[in-house]
Simulated scan of single mutants.
Amino acid sequence: MPGDYVPGAIYPLEVKLSDPSAQRWGFEFTIIDQSGVSAGTLAPTDANTQISTGGPFGRTYVKHTTAGTNLGQTGQNTWLVNWQAPAAGAGGLGLFVAGNAANGNLSNTGDRIYTASFTTAEGAVSSVPDRGMIARLSSPYPNPFNPRTVVGFSLGKPGLVTLAIYTVRGVRVSRIYSGELDAGDHSFVWKGTDEGGAVQSSGLYFARLTDGRGRDLAPPVKMTLAR
């Protein structure tokens, strides 16, 4: 969990649970604001995690799936989740996580429960881009797509920007554009390749628009490459 977050930015979160006697694994966590309401957007990265909503406060949680319990695996287990931070103004947030290190005997006898909590603060003014430049990043079209899609956005005023494509794990695939642009509407094509021209596989990707200091100008948008 980052010590401070940039509103709208996407962060890959890793949950790691270790126990020498465990052979089956589980976890659940939520991220809430100071009023107890779920903050930001949680998204699974694979078939080992899922989203659920419920409880007395209607919060959103991410937790393991049946596949994600990894029965028979010993020592430790790891899950990966993406979290998109909330819009500016959410303030400080808390992450609360519980892990279940089970012995695989299909009962709760001998299982161990671990808990932890973390806090993160909204980025300082220096971490937030110029409000006059804040952009609107449109949903790519077409979406899903094959082999190319158009990503459009609108800038409030001129400035240095970078438009890049990322995997769900937060790895940059391609930098579509980086340079000065005037205020107004702009659009660029992503051909489903990396910066070296290698064709990318089917899956979920994110377009991210940042300023010259790497600060998000708008919440990232999702796109699906379907070959």
Rank of each mutant, 00 (worst) to 15 (best):
Q73L: 12
I113K: 09
N105H: 08
A218K: 01
N100A: 12
K16T: 11
A87E: 09
T45S: 00
P56V: 13
N82S: 15
Q50W: 00
P219H: 06
W25Y: 08
G54M: 06
F153K: 12
V150A: 10
T41I: 10
I113S: 10
G92E: 11
T69K: 13
Y166T: 04
S127N: 12
A226H: 06
P44F: 03
S178L: 02
R136H: 14
V150I: 13
V15Y: 01
R136E: 15
K157L: 12
N77A: 13
G36W: 03
V150W: 05
T119A: 07
S127Q: 14
I113Y: 09
G99W: 03
A116L: 07
V125A: 15
V15M: 05
S126I: 12
A207P: 05
D216K: 01
I51F: 04
N143L: 02
S187Q: 15
G170R: 00
E14T: 15
G3W: 00
G92I: 05
E122I: 06
A135W: 11
V161Y: 09
A121L: 12
P20Q: 09
K16P: 02
A207N: 03
F206S: 04
T224N: 07
D185W: 11
N146V: 06
T109P: 00
G26L: 05
A87K: 08
I165W: 04
T149D: 06
A87S: 14
G214H: 13
T60A: 01
E180F: 14
I176P: 02
A101S: 10
D182H: 11
A102P: 12
S138L: 09
S38A: 12
P20F: 06
V81Y: 02
G40Y: 01
D194M: 02
D194G: 01
G75P: 07
N82V: 01
V171K: 08
T120F: 00
D194A: 01
V221L: 06
T53R: 12
S21N: 13
G8H: 05
W79C: 00
S107D: 14
S202N: 15
A218Y: 02
T30F: 07
Y11Q: 01
A39S: 10
G26T: 08
V97P: 02
L80T: 00
V189G: 01
G203S: 02
S18N: 11
G184Y: 11
I51W: 01
Q73T: 15
L13F: 04
